[in-house]
């Protein structure tokens, strides 16, 4: 019975092909540093899951953002755990993604034929930093407010176009409800969409080209 169900599904989904191409493939013998990529992916998924739970109660308006976070921390059952994991997961993800980049650099894995994997990786690194920057404002506490104030001032120093960039980021000359809703939207829709698509490309390339081997003295 199970066998017939599997065959039915396999005929339509191509499960055997997926198994052969993705799982049952030979890769060079590598060390533990090569787990950082999948660790980044795992952290991204975890941030996605905890983030979705946080949106249930979070309200992106200056009047309610802080109180809704307090509510999550004090009233919602296990809200403190979800927020705590999201908070620390964000810090850890920046660290893991950065070390993943250093590992790739050290083993020269960005060279032929993996140039595009590297470029998509740079997009992912920058998007991760963007997630950190936009997410930091959302609790609307003192630390968040002032970090974003200085953060959005920085592009304002660029000659000619600087002030325009700052006003686009803030939605006006000062931090306001508009800034918060812009950051929220970028944090939960724009950047996750960019990251998801780029991870798709990144993974496709990793599976297609195989993970790089550790170079020996002749390489």
């Amino acid at each position: 019975m199970l066998r017939r169900l599997f065959q039915w599904l396999d005929e339509r989904l191509g499960l055997t092909t997926i198994h052969d191409v993705v799982l049952d493939r030979k890769v060079p013998k590598v060390n533990w540093w090569f787990t950082l990529g999948s660790a980044s992916l795992f952290l991204f998924l975890l941030q996605g899951i905890t983030g979705v739970f946080l949106t249930v109660y979070y309200v992106p308006s200056p009047d309610h953002a802080y109180d809704s976070v307090q509510y999550i921390m004090n009233e919602v059952r296990f809200g403190w755990l979800i927020r705590g994991m999201h908070h620390w997961g964000a810090n850890l993800m920046v660290l893991v993604v950065f070390i993943h980049m250093l590992r790739t650099f050290f083993y020269a894995a960005y060279k032929y034929p993996r140039e595009l994997t590297w470029i998509s990786g740079v997009v992912l690194l920058l998007a991760t930093l963007g997630m950190g920057f936009t997410g930091y404002l959302l609790p609307w506490n003192q630390r968040a407010y002032w970090a974003t104030t200085v953060g959005t001032e920085i592009p304002g120093t660029i000659p000619i176009i600087g002030p325009f960039i700052t006003s686009v980021l803030r939605g006006g000359s000062e931090l306001s409800a508009l800034t918060l809703s812009r950051f929220y939207s970028v944090h939960i829709w724009f950047l996750p969409a960019v990251i998801t698509v780029t991870i798709g490309l990144h993974l496709y390339l990793v599976i297609r080209l195989g993970i790089s081997h550790i170079p020996d003295e002749n390489d």
Partner: peptide
Amino acid sequence: LIGLAVFVGVPNEPKA
């Protein structure tokens, strides 16, 4: 992460 969330937590900050 669970350890950090449980034992360190998220520092509470005053409202903006």
